[in-house]
Design a binder for these strands. Structure first.
Lengths: 203, 203
DNA sequence: GTTTTTGCACTGACCAGTCAGTGCAAAAAG
DNA sequence: CTTTTTGCACTGACTGGTCAGTGCAAAAAC
């Protein structure tokens, strides 16, 4: 991919970074192209030289970000499998990978959550595709685990996957927004406990 | 309270209903006051007769909605306690109450999630207050459970509460958006299993 | 010499908020 | 009774401003 090194790619990257924080803070419609250009330190014309429109910039940003996330989740699952960990270990590693990602790209996460369940929007389609990619990684591990007899076969794979994703997402955003002094390990520990059912009494 | 029956209150209610779906679909900034007025079957001036500004309308809408939610969660917890259920039962009842609420007011939930972690916005303060009220109900049950020795004392009350809320929120929104054919009991069942740690193997 | 970026003036659609005025029912004045 | 006044709820045309997107010539980078 030559595009990842050229001058143009560097400009796009600057625009992504400027757009992601502004849109996370204010929302898509409330963020102006002039603001994005200014924060990226670029002329407005450059925005339109690189992207067909404001929406297209946003869609490409979404794809870009979710690409990073799924790669990181997959990596965590594979890494665990390679080093002989169980499926629970794999889920646990994915939870951590999720937390690390959100910690690193909080603005992207905010914006993603804010847009995910919106209907009637131009990028609805993009979001669906991209969501499916991410949730599919979790579903994959759950399904394998059920097949291998490691997880209860009573579980509903897709609902459980959604619930797990939600658990991590909301806990992480809450952590960053309201208790930023906590460590990543604290948060990871709390979620691990919950995942393993050690909240409701048994040891 | 006379205000809950008069002509004016009826108009406000119509405006809330119009605003909630439009803002859930499009976001706050992308929704125009003209649209809200039109959907409510009212002139634009009426919106400004009843609310000082678009933001104020939105803030009052938030307070209104979260009030309903917390009442419903508290009710579920108390009902369980009264009929001699355990804390796990109370959590489970609250999960169900949450699902029922989201099923009934999906638009409100979408809009709440979309705005909750935004910074730099006029209603930031309102959201904080209102969030605290809702999460506090869950935290209360967790704290009581730990004190009573029913939950592990290793748990981190506030992080666990956030994670539980997230689990319900995301699972429910996913249910409504992507698998609406599932029943409430299906979703509740999946979340119960997860809460009780019966996903990762033990019976 | 080709690609990319800049700077800047311009347009036209769109939109939050305003304001003078309407309709109406109940109270006050005659 | 009947006329006039008052206050409330609502109306919709209008205004001042904002913003996505355009056009283009000149400079900079490669």
């Amino acid at each position: 991919m030559k595009s990842s090194t050229g001058r143009r790619a560097a400009t796009k990257q600057k625009l992504y970074e400027a757009a992601v924080t502004l849109i996370a803070e204010q929302g898509f419609s409330a963020t102006t192209v002039d603001e994005i250009a200014e924060r990226a330190g670029v002329a407005k014309g450059t925005v339109y030289y690189n992207f067909a429109s404001k929406s297209v910039l946003f869609e490409e940003l979404l794809r870009h970000g979710v690409g990073l996330l799924t790669a990181s989740l997959r990596e965590a699952a594979e890494q665990t499998a390679r080093s002989g960990g169980s499926r629970v270990d794999a889920l646990d590693a994915m939870i951590r990978a999720g937390l690390v990602f959100i910690h690193r790209y909080p603005a992207f996460t905010q914006l993603y959550v804010a847009e995910l369940w919106r209907t009637n929007r131009a990028w609805q389609e993009t979001l669906m595709v991209v969501r499916q990619e991410a949730v599919a990684v979790v579903e994959g591990v759950l399904r394998d685990g059920v097949e291998a007899g490691e997880f209860s076969d009573e579980i509903d794979v897709s609902l459980t996957a959604a619930a797990l994703v939600g658990m991590v997402l909301v806990a992480a955003l809450d952590w960053l927004a309201f208790q930023p002094e906590r460590s990543l390990d604290d948060v990871h520990g709390a979620l691990s406990l919950l995942l393993q059912g050690r909240v409701t009494g048994r040891r």
